[in-house]
């Protein structure tokens, strides 16, 4: 019955309370633009929670993806729909009220069930004593990668990560297919897009000085993922965000002249191909798919260094795909599919 003061429960409770308030506010607000912004605030708050729970890689991803990209695509979509929700409630709410009652009962049952869960932050909990301690103890000897998260992500659970990359690739294609071909009758919604006038000198100047730094930082995050928080997902998202920032501060055409849609699509597919190609190369050399130790002779290094290099190579693949998918999502969603002008 002792409690270690190193976990600041006061801080947690404050942040969790603010998250609940943000969640309720985001659902209750009548303006959809403000709803989108509050969702961004919610993402930043959960980012604080991740950091405090020592999940730095997760916090990094959440800050780049949840708080930045999600908010931008929500705002981009809000251009093409009514900005306000309809106030008068629909008449038939019976089935929905029944759902609320069932939901409340489920919530009470789940809250009751937490008594059986292991205490929060208990080092002896089942989740922390079986597989994960093996990862921590062996990852460095087997893969020469001090960041255990990176080692597990790209080596031990390489299949998982590869198919995650395939999923985001498929999502980018689906968005494109859904929005690109719109019949003439349905194009009129695109005129809702506000016209951009004048030159935002301050914004453009700021973008000019921030974007190169962002891109170098993204590459650092990608290539330093073995030794510090970061890796392919985070680096890719930051690199993609630099093109989105360019489009936000200038306009969509300006960004598309530098990173054409054709190139974006090649990058989308190329990253996944690089990942799968490295897996297939290992297979060709007589090892398992994604068994990077097969590359040892080819690279002239020891087996565990080969795994370290293999991790780096697939992280680059993930980074390229994620970067291109984020840019592609922005191009399509913010322009409503016609790629004429964006947010």
């Amino acid at each position: 019955m002792t409690w270690d003061a190193s976990l600041l429960w006061q801080f947690d409770i404050l942040v969790l309370l603010m998250m609940v308030i943000c969640a309720v506010t985001a659902l209750a607000l009548e303006g959809l633009l403000s709803s989108a912004i509050v969702t961004g605030v919610y993402s930043f708050l959960i980012c604080l929670m991740w950091t405090h729970m020592m999940a730095v890689d997760v916090a990094f991803t959440e800050a780049a993806v949840g708080a930045a990209i999600s908010t931008v695509i929500l705002l981009g979509t809000a251009q093409y729909i009514s900005r306000w929700i309809k106030k008068d409630r629909p008449k038939e709410q019976g089935i929905k009220q029944l759902t609320i009652i069932i939901g409340v009962i489920c919530a009470v049952m789940m809250l009751n069930a937490t008594r059986d869960l292991p205490d929060w932050a208990d080092p002896a909990s089942p989740a922390s004593t079986h597989l994960s301690s093996g990862y921590i103890e062996q990852a460095y000897h087997e893969t020469a990668t001090p960041n255990v998260v990176t080692a597990v992500l790209a080596d031990y659970r390489g299949y998982d990560t590869m198919f995650e990359a395939v999923v985001v690739f498929a999502a980018a294609l689906v968005v494109m297919v859904l929005l690109r071909h719109t019949s003439h009758k349905h194009r009129k919604v695109l005129h809702l897009r506000p016209k951009r006038e004048g030159r935002d000198t301050v914004l453009r100047g700021a973008a000019q000085s921030i974007i190169p730094v962002m891109q170098i930082f993204a590459l650092y995050v990608l290539f330093h993922g073995h030794y510090s928080p970061g890796g392919g997902f985070q680096g890719g998202v930051i690199f993609g965000a630099s093109f989105i920032l360019l489009a936000l501060c200038y306009n969509l055409k300006f960004s598309m002249n530098r990173f054409r849609e054709h190139a974006v699509l090649w990058c989308c597919a190329g990253g996944v191909l690089l990942y799968a190609g490295i897996g297939a190369a290992c297979l060709g050399l007589g090892w398992n798919f994604l068994g990077y130790a097969a590359l040892a002779d080819l690279l002239g290094v020891s087996g565990k260094m080969a795994r370290s290099h293999g991790i780096l190579a697939v992280e680059v693949g993930v980074g390229i795909t994620v970067m291109a998918v984020m840019v592609s999502l922005y191009y399509d969603l913010a322009s409503g599919g016609d790629l004429e002008d964006g947010l």
Binding site: T61, V168, F233, V237, M326, L329
Partner: peptide, 17 residues
């Protein structure tokens, strides 16, 4: 425990997709 971090990291990116 690094395992939930790995699972959630990828889940966030799939979430935005």
């Amino acid at each position: 425990n690094p395992l939930p971090h790995v699972l959630i990291l990828t889940a966030i990116v799939v979430g935005v997709a």
